[in-house]
Design a protein around this nucleic acid. Structure first.
Lengths: 199, 199
DNA sequence: AGGAAATCTTGACAATGTCTAGTTTGGTGA
DNA sequence: TCACCAAACTAGACATTGTCAAGATTTCCT
């Protein structure tokens, strides 16, 4: 009827993307507890059972939202890396700061991505997005000598360290004397990491 | 009436403890998603609204269960420390292993304790139990020189590292080539930590 | 144009947390 | 001893949530 082709295909067009966006907004505005199937549907302007046709059910929707989160997560870390000194250790510290920035900027999304595995139903797209985020950090760790005989040990150690920091700070598990818990001093916290010998 | 005084005070006696125990069992047997108010009540043999009189509501019950979890958590780490070589670094590695052991032995409880802060309503008892567990690790880190100017930086670094490892391994976020993800080599992963100069 | 498939709506259902009112129990004081 | 009272627990109802079945509407292919 109307003459705006991309505006409202009247079967809503791309409900899938709209529902994911609604979920991200609810997460940012009201937290994880308010992220329900029906709330996402209402925000997108559709009935409460419309999401099931695109995501199967709640786990599918949450997985899609978390997958989108991993994309944003990788973007955040990549942006931090781009703006930093190209020296390997500076790059690594920038990645860590990007990691913390994301956790602080999107706490509820961060929780959904990492702390509620039982509520998700990982599919190929989700695994790909999560792996892509992992690879950003792994690439940044590649110049360094592994800390054990496992070639991935540096990534694991750094990832665990920064993830633990972000997770514990967000959960408020650190002692209250912590006045400024915003950004740890990664230069001091990260151990000395010698560069690999062979290129 | 009957002659077994501790058995059944018939107003159930200590429903509070029974509900916490039921919650721990449900958590161990069926996971976090099955841990509901009504399931705990049914397992303890009381009506579905009995728990509210002792815990206020679901958040109160979950908090009490998580608080009990922190007690078990501290016990696990203390036991690991007792059985280890008394040298500071050996003590620290033992604590880390105890941490991982707990996470592996009680995955759902671990998730409740650390990954669902929005569902808990921390009270004094909970904070005390969580702090006590923190202190076990802090005491073990005390012999070492802080890694930054913050005197608590060593505890934070070690706690974050081991928590990140436990959390990521449990969430299955590490790459699949990880055949034996059971217990990391903390001797290699933990950075060299010089002892404090002054006692 | 016509029909098939995708998309979305409506209505119902079971499960859950919470609230209110009522019932039972155990202790305490006259 | 016994009556009373507060605590402990039950019973029922209600709103919210996720899921499912059935039907209506739109889009697309031929």
């Amino acid at each position: 009827m109307t003459s705006d082709p991309p505006r409202k295909p009247h079967h809503h067009g791309n409900l899938r993307a709209a529902l994911i966006q609604s979920g991200l907004e609810i997460l940012a505005e009201s937290g994880l507890s308010k992220l329900t199937l029906r709330a996402c549907a209402a925000r997108a302007g559709v009935s409460h059972s419309a999401p099931a046709h695109h995501f199967g059910g709640l786990p599918g929707l949450l997985t899609a939202i978390a997958g989108r989160g991993f994309e944003i997560f990788a973007d955040t870390m990549n942006a931090a890396r781009r703006d930093a000194d190209p020296a390997p250790r500076a790059q690594l510290i920038a990645i860590c700061r990007g990691y913390m920035d994301f956790a602080e900027a999107h706490p509820a999304l961060f929780t959904l991505m990492f702390n509620t595995p039982a509520r998700l139903a990982p599919d190929d797209a989700f695994v790909a997005a999560a792996d892509a985020a992992y690879d950003v950090l792994a690439d940044t760790c590649a110049p360094f000598e592994p800390v054990t005989d496992d070639p991935r040990s540096t990534e694991m150690m750094v990832w665990a360290l920064v993830h633990g920091l972000a997770s514990l700070l967000q959960g408020g598990r650190f002692k209250p004397e912590n006045d400024r818990m915003d950004m740890p001093d990664f230069e001091a916290i990260l151990p000395p990491l010698p560069l690999r010998a062979d290129p």
